[in-house]
Design a binder for these strands. Structure first.
Length: 272
DNA sequence: AGCTTGTCCTGACTGC
DNA sequence: TGCAGTCAGGACAAGC
């Protein structure tokens, strides 16, 4: 499940090679309802490859954005490189030509079809409501203690589903929500998060995401980078997927439950 | 308007 | 061994 650290790791591998290339042709499964005008990218040069939350946003000539969301199982691979050959799960491909004249084909493999591929006018993301309403980048200066505290105070939602909504902060998914809430000692179902706990959660989100980026993401099952490598963060998880193991802080057995319809692992001993 | 629930999707896993 | 049922969770729409 690619979250911010996974998408950032992909972006860092992708950007140096992609910037400056022209997209000659886009092959995309026409049956995918979340693919919006992908062929509008044809003939246009990529000028930058940025990331907003879990979205990859490539700027194209003519003031267009090429937006890619990896969904649950999305992976990008260069055709016939690093041991990759396309299979039945490739839903879209970008056909380009490297500066040396060789074809460069980027395949988008997405087993569960939850991914998004869209071309929009630059900055006009109303067709992607979560992107349009996306909260601040957690590692940027717009993610402030006061703003985060105010957002938590204003909502009536449980704290974990609120984080997953992408509105208080961008890029936190199920893995890093569990990790950050554990680190901040906050119960994931809490509806009242005061300033002290809000500040702890703010710091915890930044820490778990920054550490995961350093380790190039968490590979639980599907996630891999553009060269096929796995992330190295899975061994450092203390909450997500750690049901039954002793809490590293208080030794209580980690418990799994469902909150907001999502599997949630937390420590009943020290997350209140 | 905002929160909650259900839906999509398909491979992996569980239990009989 | 085979097969049905369940689970996983991104975003988002429908329902309350």
């Amino acid at each position: 499940m690619p979250e911010l650290p996974e998408v950032e790791s992909v972006r860092r591998q992708l950007a140096p090679r992609l910037v400056g290339l022209a997209i000659d042709r886009v092959e995309a499964d026409p049956a995918m309802p979340r693919y919006l005008r992908p062929t509008d990218a044809e003939g246009l040069t990529i000028t930058s490859v940025e990331r907003r939350g879990k979205y990859l946003v490539a700027s194209l000539e003519d003031a267009l954005d090429l937006i890619l969301h990896l969904g649950m199982t999305g992976v990008l691979r260069w055709r016939d490189e690093d041991g990759w050959e396309p299979d039945a799960y490739v839903r879209a491909s970008l056909h380009m030509v490297d500066p040396d004249g060789r074809p460069a084909i980027l395949d988008f493999r997405d087993v569960r079809r939850f991914g998004t591929l869209a071309v929009t006018r630059h900055g006009e993301h109303d067709e992607l409501p979560t992107l349009a309403a996306l909260g601040p980048e957690p590692l940027g200066e717009d993610f402030t203690l006061a703003g985060f505290a105010a957002a938590l105070r204003a909502t009536g939602q449980q704290v974990k589903p609120f984080l997953l909504s992408q509105r208080p902060v961008a890029g936190v998914g199920n893995i890093y929500a569990d990790e950050a809430l554990w680190r901040a000692r906050i119960h994931p179902a809490s509806r009242r998060v005061g300033r002290a706990r809000s500040d702890r959660l703010h710091a915890a989100i930044r820490e778990v995401l920054a550490e995961a980026i350093e380790r190039e993401g968490t590979t639980f099952r599907d996630y891999q980078m553009v060269n096929g490598a796995s992330g190295r963060n899975a061994a450092f998880l203390v909450a997500y997927g750690q049901e039954g193991k002793p809490c590293p802080r208080c030794a209580t057995a980690m418990r799994k439950t469902t909150i907001g319809g999502r599997g949630t692992t937390y420590c009943p001993g020290c997350q209140r």
